[in-house]
Nucleic acid binder design. Structure first.
Lengths: 341, 341
DNA sequence: TAAGTTCAGTTAAACGTTTAACTAATATCA
DNA sequence: TGATATTAGTTAAACGTTTAACTGAACTTA
């Protein structure tokens, strides 16, 4: 059968406790014995049984990762990248990540993820907007929960957030420095905090530059920030106001929609209109022109979340931290110096 | 602390063995006792400890799922959908899926996935093309392995495959029925079996319709089947042959590249050229015109793989099955009846 | 030198299940 | 009727670890 700690102990001529102490280096063992044990472990290709370990330590060694179907299957690998960041980091710490998806219209009748019901995780990471009734039901299980890129209504949870305000400022500043004055903002649902914060950054940047805010340059009534809604929002923007020289959209998907609208209506990018997105999802490298955008470090969001939850697990006291991950301006081809017509 | 089988046994007034028999219904227990135990379980909200179970049963209850980074982070949610299918199915069978990625240039110096080293999975599902040295090293661990959408060089593994030949026939037949004669095939790497099979279907369909095969209508030298290579392949196709009225590309990504090329060069789709893709990844719903394609049932590929591996695990004898999952023609706007210029 | 301290290692209990082997009661049948 | 089979349940060992409590030797120190 499989090699166990007993086999190692026997072959190395020590007790199983000693082997255990070596593998965990939890007690001082003479270098001589230690090396002998280590060598034996290697030669037998011994790997401790996870279940036996978990059983006695009362830990599971698993972290649950929850995503809605919507987010999971998004065209752009945004949330999958975040997951990957978490998985990467977990490798160093002997944790496994259990990924599951829930329906985005999760309701009272839906079952909680199995790993919650069976208590097979030590903590939970949730990325993106999630139905609040799930959060409420989750709280009964008193597991540590961390949110990525979402601010739940109830306080007290540690949060890993994108520095959206900073991103909004970065994007808008870029356009301002290029000489633009009539800068539009196109967002999805204003109820979503990221959109609100990005808009906030936009406003702050304008104010700092003494450019008056015009409400008819702000379109934030689309239900979902996808390409189609980007297209429609652009249409509505230009219906109100022909005098736009630059557009900041709250994400790349909408930006691509806007791009389509502009092309369909004879505007050249960036000659007639400059366009900047947000996320940098590399969704469309064939885009012409290539999109200037704000890069969100997705992998890093995932790794940060993992580090934080492990910390929480070790120190037991629930620090309700809020970590803002910085973003970066990526200048490509869709923005240019303002030239009056 | 946590509720254990002992608590249930005590409260229900039976031995722990009885409780175990009830939870597994592995032995006949009187309905009376059974109901009493069940009720107690519910009232205490008891859930068996997975690690204790795994320890004695020598199963882990986990299946490993391996993807290369390339596939994982593909723009189109192709492989993530397959994973989701597996995860869905696993829910019914009390299995968990451990998803991990490896680098696409995985080599001898890279570590095997942790779940292999630590023996924390009962079997492995691999989706998409994977470096063969990984397969070789994996075979040492004598775990059941199943491949999805990839035929490894070494035989004997159960395979879940897309019915590519049938798909090739379906696509080409569609174009033939529309009256096209000069039908081009654009594929990526011909070394890839899916491309070969799709091309095969293409050839079969032409032959059946008595349309002579022209080699200068077949472009299969792109290293990777993405948009950029679709664009380039189209360029090369039209350099050799202006007389093309329909194009069948081996996947949607290349089809989108081809679409860009056609637009850039003044061809109207489908008036001048009909275009059909493969995969139906819904990557670009803003596409104009919407792409006619062959739909691959991604979720189903995942569920089939899971069912097969569980079967393998239960019956122990390694049936080297090959399951061909059928595809479906989805007619949208990019194909039309042939009209001579 | 005697008492105490440190060091290196061992022993054995515990974690929460499953399951083979057993028991005791009841049913079946020639 | 007595032997046998069936049913419903129990007992106890086993799975592979961790770790508290212990042991014995070697080293300090007054």
């Amino acid at each position: 059968m499989s090699i166990t700690i007993k086999d190692v102990a026997k072959k190395a001529g020590v007790s199983i406790a000693t082997v255990s102490f070596v593998t965990n280096n939890s007690k001082h063992i003479s270098t001589e014995t230690k090396n002998r044990v280590l060598k034996t472990i290697k030669s037998l290709n011994y790997h401790p049984s996870k279940s036996a370990r978990d059983l006695v330590s009362k830990k599971t060694g698993f972290i649950g990762f929850i995503l809605t179907d919507d987010h999971f299957l998004r065209t752009e690998p945004f949330y999958t990248r975040i997951f990957l960041g978490t998985e990467f980091e977990a490798r160093n710490d002997d944790y496994y990540i259990l990924l599951t998806s829930i329906r985005s219209d999760f309701n009272e009748n839906d079952q909680l993820p199995r790993f919650v019901l069976n208590k097979s995780v030590d903590g939970i990471i949730i990325a993106g907007k999630i139905p609040i009734n799930l959060i409420e039901r989750l709280s009964d299980y008193n597991l540590p929960i961390i949110f990525i890129d979402f601010i739940p209504p109830s306080n007290g949870y540690p949060l890993i957030l994108i520095d959206n305000i900073q991103g909004g400022i970065l994007a808008t500043d870029h356009l301002i420095h290029l000489g633009h004055k009539n800068i539009a903002f196109i967002g999805g649902d204003i109820e979503h905090t990221s959109v609100r914060d990005r808009l906030n950054g936009y406003k702050q940047a304008l104010e700092k530059a003494n450019i008056p805010l015009k409400n008819n340059l702000i379109i934030v009534d689309a239900p979902y920030p996808d390409r189609q809604n980007g297209y429609n929002s652009a249409k509505r923007l230009f219906a109100k106001n022909k005098n736009v020289s630059a557009i900041f959209t709250c994400n790349d998907a909408m930006a691509i929609g806007v791009m389509h609208y502009l092309k369909d209506n004879g505007y050249d990018i960036p000659r007639d209109v400059s366009l900047i997105g947000f996320d940098d999802v590399e969704a469309d490298l064939m885009l012409n022109p290539l999109l200037t955008t704000i890069r969100v470090p997705k992998i890093e969001l995932g790794t940060e979340a993992f580090r934080l939850i492990v910390n929480l697990l070790k120190n037991k006291k629930s620090i309700s931290k809020k970590i803002l991950v910085p973003v970066e301006l990526i200048v490509r081809e869709s923005t240019a110096i303002y030239k009056p017509k």
